[in-house]
Simulated assay, not measured.
Amino acid sequence: MKTTTRGQTGLAIPVLVLVSGLVAIAGAFLGSGAIVGTPIQDAAGGWLSADSTPLAPASPAFRIWSVIYLGLFAYSIWQLLPAQRRSDRHRVLRPWAAAAMLLNAAWIWVVQAGWLAASLLVIVVLLAVLIRILFILMHTRAENAADAIITDGTFGLYLGWITVATIANTAAVLGAAGFSGFGLSVPLLASVVLAVAAVIGVVQAWRTGGRIAPALALAWGLAWIAVGRVDGGLESTGTAIAAAICSAAVLLAAVVLWLKSRRPRAKLAD
């Protein structure tokens, strides 16, 4: 799909995207407990805290949300501008972007209500929406550097982080349900899950020509799982080592594939 421009689209859907962005940010305040609501780590019985399961990232990992929310707000404004309102790329992307932002707010509200199992359903749907967004971005071209940073960068980070969050959310639901791991040791089972996450990250990097943003967020989350298992309430050296290796593998694969994807362009330029 090539990026083309047509007549300027109406304001209804762009404004809907803007409202969705504001709803997502409002949800963030609710989830932080800064003004109203319960902090996520204390909601839903505390099963989403940094020490709840062996696959929970350490608390500093969640600082990435500040970058993601800033990017979502920037995109909400960016897609309103006339050039983006004429863009087929953003015309296709807008409904999915709005859905991603509303689902994020819905996840926070569900967790606030204490519905842990329902939160897993919401985050899985959110992950599917973000994967769809990735395919749209893969098959359309960023119109300029600003579009690449605001659009591709934001939704790439969002996808990578939600991949980690889905893993942590799944572990929380299973833990709350009393899942024993089929008799396998906790470090072994955690390492298997982390390896699957790494494979997903590597395959994603391969399919996207080494897109850095999704890999960076995924590697960030895996690295903080490693930190959490070294310095936290659920220490596990084996899990920490596995998470660190998986984090490095995802990031290295993305960098190598990104460099490889740039070589033909460099030769053509010569």
Rank of each mutant, 00 (worst) to 15 (best):
K2W: 12
K2R: 15
T3L: 12
T4Q: 14
T9A: 12
G10K: 09
P14I: 04
L18M: 09
V19E: 02
G21Y: 01
V23H: 05
A24N: 02
A26P: 00
F29K: 01
L30S: 04
T38Y: 02
A44E: 03
S59Y: 13
A61D: 10
F62Y: 03
I68R: 00
Y69V: 01
F73T: 04
A74M: 15
Y75L: 07
L80E: 11
Q84W: 02
D88P: 05
D88Y: 13
V92F: 15
R94L: 08
R94T: 04
A97N: 00
A98N: 06
A105F: 01
W109C: 15
A113P: 00
S119W: 00
S119A: 04
V125E: 12
L127V: 10
R141L: 15
G153D: 04
F155N: 12
L157G: 02
I162N: 08
V164H: 13
I167L: 13
A168C: 13
A176C: 09
G178F: 09
G183Y: 13
A190V: 08
S191F: 03
V192R: 05
V196T: 15
Q204N: 09
A215W: 08
A215H: 11
A217M: 06
L218T: 01
I225K: 00
G232Y: 04
G233Q: 09
T237G: 11
A248W: 13
V256W: 08
L259T: 07
A269S: 10
